[in-house]
């Protein structure tokens, strides 16, 4: 087995039976992972197309609906994911150089960031559920009255939402009734919001599972992770999850003018 590597400190690798050379094997893994990521791009891409179409058809409804989202929590989550992407890249680098402790350290931070992301997401989701923003028969929408509602005053908002519809019938002519159904284009926004962020969150959970497994394997010095390739591939996946969020944040949280 020939190992002629550019970097003197790079850890040794093993060759599978179907390959001839270690370089070939490495490139195959990387290209294979990228091909998988291409399918993921198309997977999320279809949702982005749906978002773009509906946003262009119902610009105002989307602009109104998105005010219910908490921009600051979204910003926090973007920050968390960018950080985790950085630490994931560092973990791959450390693993490539055979620095076990540093690898474990950076992987741990990446995993913690992923958990942090999910915690923030949990806070956001529970607020949306409290306000009946989840699409379906219980969907309910109220136009935020003040700018403070936009700023994430969750406790105040939730109390209002739990009560009866704020707009009472007697403020309108007798034959003119407020209709929740008329506001359903916002349900469309929230459907896309939940599907897209939910699917992204699902990818984060898979990422935690993969990175956590790697962490354990490296911790217990399992032979399958002598090679840096598993960490490299998990890193590629994790960066992809980050990229999806890089687009989700401006397109879902920052619609139109604030």
């Amino acid at each position: 087995m020939s190992l002629e590597l550019q970097h003197p400190a790079v850890a040794p690798q093993r060759l599978s039976h179907q390959f001839e050379q270690i370089d070939q094997q490495n490139e195959i893994y990387i290209v294979g992972m990228w091909t998988f990521l291409v399918t993921e791009i198309m997977f999320f891409g279809a949702l982005f197309v749906a978002l773009t179409v509906y946003r262009s058809v119902y610009p105002d409804a989307f602009e109104q609906a998105h005010t219910a989202l908490n921009v600051w929590l979204g910003l926090t989550n973007t920050f968390i994911l960018l950080t985790s992407s950085f630490t994931a890249a560092m973990a791959v680098r450390s693993k490539m150089l055979g620095e076990r402790t540093r690898t474990l350290f950076f992987l741990a931070i990446t995993i913690m960031c992923a958990f942090g992301f999910l915690c923030v997401k949990y806070v956001e989701y529970s607020a949306e559920f409290r306000e009946h923003h989840f699409p379906g028969p219980n969907f309910h929408w109220e136009q935020p009255v003040t700018a403070s509602a936009v700023q994430g005053d969750l406790s105040a908002n939730s109390q209002v939402a739990l009560g009866s519809p704020k707009i009472s019938v007697n403020e309108f002519p007798a034959n003119y009734q407020p209709q929740q159904l008329a506001l359903h284009k916002r349900e469309l926004f929230f459907s896309l919001y939940f599907v897209m962020t939910g699917l992204h969150g699902f990818h984060v959970i898979i990422g935690i599972f993969v990175l956590g497994t790697l962490w354990l394997l490296i911790y217990f010095r399992h032979p399958t992770v002598d090679d840096y390739m598993p960490v490299e591939l998990a890193g590629l996946y994790w960066h992809f999850v980050d990229i999806v969020w890089i687009f989700l944040y401006p397109l879902v949280y920052l619609i139109g003018k604030q």
């Binding site: 087995m1 020939s2 002629e4 590597l5 550019q6 970097h7 790079v10 060759l15 039976h17 001839e20 050379q21 270690i22 370089d23 070939q24 490495n26 490139e27 990387i30 960018l82 950080t83 950085f86 890249a89 560092m90 680098r93 490539m96 150089l97």
Partner: peptide, 29 residues
Amino acid sequence: MANTDNHNHDSGAGHHHVTPVSTYVATYV
């Protein structure tokens, strides 16, 4: 099994490129 050890160095050797930490930090910032 790797019976052809006269392989071309240019083809896949690039994967072993180790990016300096400073590049990663700069990108992060």
